[in-house]
Design a protein around this nucleic acid. Structure first.
Lengths: 159, 159
DNA sequence: GCATATTGTTAAGTAGGTAAACAGTTTTGC
DNA sequence: GCAAAACTGTTTACCTACTTAACAATATGC
């Protein structure tokens, strides 16, 4: 009598996948996103800016005197969710909230020199991480991928 | 004297973006993923399976008697993270944990009839949601996108 | 046999948000 | 003018989707 067949995949075999799952854009999108995000964190280390913090800083540097509301809209998140991100950037001395003469509700975001430097340094690291992770994609493939992702992004709800 | 210039973007203008951010694959990937995920949830409603639960059910249906460890590996998550997902599927009567004769550590996952039906129905809804959301992409574009995302997924860490 | 590995599980923590409410401050509609 | 509506930043509570570390029970390698 043979020993009972194992009701599982031997770990030495390649992992199988549900065929229909693998054909879904959403599933592939998520799995690819996880790959890139993990590599981002590995590349930038513990002291580095998180993806969302880097994105916020990038926009604040590119568009000085942005308000938090507008920045939240650009990032596609709620105003309330941006508060912690700005708190972190301000605490790290990368930008500061400043009052605006014409509107006392608003706090314009002014990038500081350390913030501009941190942005430049982090951008270089992020580009290096992407270049290395995606070195098996040709330039045309990368451009095509961005083109297609932007086509999906056209459905972003601009609340 | 003109009234002080507003230190923010008028909301009537199109939202600007940080140029370098828009060229990053990771950023576009995340934003596109959020679009698809939100549409998924809107399409499936409150009673529907979440993306992760649907993915787990798909694999459990495609490969009956899978163990939780193997399923977690296929999904690219930790064993501990899968427990809540299986709890939910079992609570909803979609599958059940069963003991395996040869190995008393293992709990094989057996899809129930309700689970097979729920999987089929949910798959149809998910396909409909993707078809509608991505109707502005041609079939070739969709295939290309999946091809490129899978190229990124080749870097998945198969721990 | 004993050391080592594996399985499922719990508990605690993390990341990245949303939703609702709020006070303070404009802006709109008459 | 002035009340109603809208907008800003913020706090609080909550949520989703994980991870890490530990654990007992069980199985495997040598």
């Amino acid at each position: 009598m043979a020993k009972p067949t194992r009701a599982r995949l031997p770990t030495s075999e390649p992992l199988k996948m549900a065929p229909e799952l693998e054909e879904l854009i959403g599933y592939n999108l998520k799995r690819a996103y996880v790959v890139v995000q993990k590599d981002y964190r590995a590349a930038l280390g513990d002291g580095g800016l998180s993806p969302r913090t880097f994105a916020a800083l990038s926009l604040a540097v590119a568009y000085p005197n942005l308000t938090q509301s507008n920045l939240a809209r650009m990032l596609g998140i709620e105003r309330s969710g941006l508060v912690a991100i700005i708190d972190e950037l301000e605490r790290d001395g990368l930008l500061k909230r400043t009052t605006v003469p014409g509107d006392r509700r608003v706090q314009a975001l002014v990038p500081l020199e350390a913030g501009i430097a941190a942005h430049r340094a982090t951008l270089a690291k992020v580009k290096a991480h992407e270049d290395k992770l995606l070195e098996d994609l040709s330039d045309v493939e990368k451009e095509t991928l961005i083109f297609l992702l932007r086509k999906i992004r056209r459905h972003e709800t601009e609340s």
